[in-house]
C-alpha cells in the first residue's frame, strides 16, 4: 500500500469492518440482554407473574435487537462476500441450529401472549430453550472461529467452553438488565442471578483469553509486542476491574430509593466492550483467521461506496429512533402491557 495515494479499495474495507464490528458489538449487547432474560426465566408454576414481567421488559425491543444480527451478517455478506461463504459453509450445522433457536424463541414470545392458558407454560419453556440454544451455538461458533474452524477434539473442547462462556455472559447482561427494569422480589432474584452469572462469565473470559494467544501464535506476538503491550494490557485490566467492581456493587444492591440500579448494566457493558476490543485486536485485519484478510475478501469498491452513502444517511436515523424508543420505555417494566 503506497502511503501517498490511499485508494477507495484500501480504505473502504477498513470502514466496513468497522461498521460490521459495530453491528456485532451492538448485537451482542442488545440481543445479549434479551437472550439473557430468556436464559434466566424461572420455570416453577408460581413464577408465572415474574415471567410475565421479565418478558414484558424486553417486549418492545427484541425485534429490533435481532435486526442487528441481520445487519451484522448482512454487512459480512455485502462487504466481504468470500468470507461470508467461507465462514457459513464451515459453520453449517451450528448455524442451522442457531436459526431454529431464534425461530422458536421469537415466535414463542408472541404465541405465549395469545395462546390459550394451558399452552402458555409450553411456550415459556420454548422461549427459554430457544434462548439457550441460540446462546450456546453462538458461543460455539465464536470458539470455532477463534480456532480457525479446527475439528480436532481440543478445538471442540475449547468451542464447548466458549459456548458456556458466551451463555454465561448473556445471562450476566440479562440479569443486569432485569436489575435496572424490575423492582421488589424479582429484582432481588435478578441480583443473585447476576452475581452467579458474572462469576461464570469471568471464568469463561479468562479461559478464552488464555487459550487464544496460546493456539494462535500471531495473536500472541501481537499482544506481547513491546512497547505496545503497556497500552493494550489496559484492555484485560479494565475488564478485570469491571468484573470486580460489579461483584462489590451487587453485594450492596438493592439500595434505598433504588439508587444505582442501572450501574451493574453499565459495568457489564464495559466488560462486553473490552472483550470485543480484545477479540478485534487479536484478529484485525484478518477476517477469516489465517486465511483471508479484509482486503482479499472485500467486494468491489463501487458496491461498497453505494452502500456507504446510504449507511451514512440511514444509520444515524436508526440510532435516533432507537434512542427514542428506549426513552419511551424508560423506567421499570412492571406496568408494561401488551396491547
Amino acid at each position: 500500500m503506497s502511503t501517498s495515494a490511499m485508494t477507495a479499495a484500501d480504505w473502504l474495507p477498513v470502514v466496513f469492518i468497522g461498521l460490521m464490528g459495530l453491528a456485532v458489538l451492538v448485537y451482542a449487547i442488545l440481543d445479549g440482554y434479551d437472550l439473557g432474560v430468556g436464559i434466566l426465566l424461572p420455570m416453577r408454576a408460581q413464577d408465572e407473574p415474574q415471567r410475565d414481567t421479565m418478558i414484558a421488559s424486553i417486549g418492545p425491543f427484541w425485534d429490533a435487537n435481532e435486526t442487528w444480527l441481520v445487519l451484522g451478517v448482512g454487512l459480512l455478506l455485502i462487504a466481504f462476500p468470500t468470507a461470508h461463504s467461507l465462514v457459513l459453509t464451515n459453520l453449517y450445522i451450528p448455524t442451522a441450529i442457531m436459526l431454529i433457536g431464534l425461530i422458536l424463541r421469537g415466535v414463542s414470545f408472541d404465541f405465549r401472549a395469545k395462546a390459550a392458558v394451558d399452552h402458555k407454560l409450553a411456550w415459556d419453556r420454548t422461549f427459554k430453550g430457544g434462548s439457550l440454544l441460540v446462546s450456546l451455538t453462538q458461543g460455539y461458533m465464536l470458539g470455532q472461529y477463534v480456532m480457525g474452524f479446527d475439528s480436532s477434539w481440543p478445538a471442540q473442547l475449547f468451542s464447548i467452553l466458549s459456548a458456556f462462556g458466551v451463555t454465561a455472559a448473556y445471562a450476566y447482561i440479562g440479569g443486569a438488565w432485569l436489575i435496572m427494569k424490575t423492582e421488589g422480589e424479582l429484582q432481588e432474584r435478578a441480583i443473585r442471578w447476576t452475581r452467579r452469572a458474572g462469576r461464570a462469565a469471568f471464568v469463561g473470559v479468562v479461559a478464552v483469553s488464555a487459550v487464544n494467544p496460546m493456539v494462535n501464535p500471531g495473536v500472541f506476538d501481537r499482544w506481547f509486542d513491546f512497547p505496545l503491550v503497556m497500552f493494550v494490557l489496559l484492555v484485560p485490566i479494565i475488564c478485570f476491574f469491571a468484573f470486580i467492581a460489579n461483584e462489590i456493587l451487587l453485594r450492596r444492591l438493592p439500595k434505598v430509593d433504588d439508587r444505582h440500579c442501572w450501574l451493574p448494566f453499565i459495568n457489564v457493558l464495559l466488560v462486553f466492550l473490552m472483550c470485543f476490543t480484545g477479540l478485534a485486536f487479536s484478529f484485525y485485519p484478518e477476517i477469516v483467521p489465517g486465511e483471508l484478510n479484509i482486503w482479499q475478501a472485500a467486494a468491489a469498491p463501487e458496491s461498497l461506496m453505494f452502500v456507504l452513502v446510504g449507511a451514512l444517511i440511514v444509520v444515524p436515523v436508526i440510532l435516533i429512533y432507537t434512542i427514542f424508543s428506549y426513552r419511551v420505555f424508560h423506567g421499570k417494566a412492571t406496568d408494561l402491557q401488551y396491547h
Binding site: 425485534d63 429490533a64 435481532e66 435486526t67 441481520v70 445487519l71 448482512g74 454487512l75 455478506l77 455485502i78 462487504a79 462476500p81 461470508h84 467486494a299 468491489a300 463501487e302 458496491s303 453505494f306 452502500v307 446510504g310 449507511a311 440511514v314 444509520v315 436508526i318 429512533y321 432507537t322 424508543s325
Partner: peptide, 21 residues
C-alpha cells in the same frame, strides 16, 4: 455479491430497523 449485497443491505437499513422499532 456486488449487486445482491447492496440491495439486501438497503433493505436492512431502510426497512428492518424501522418496522421492528
Amino acid at each position: 455479491g456486488n449487486i445482491a449485497g447492496p440491495l439486501l443491505g438497503y433493505e436492512v437499513l431502510t426497512a428492518f430497523f424501522l418496522e421492528a422499532t
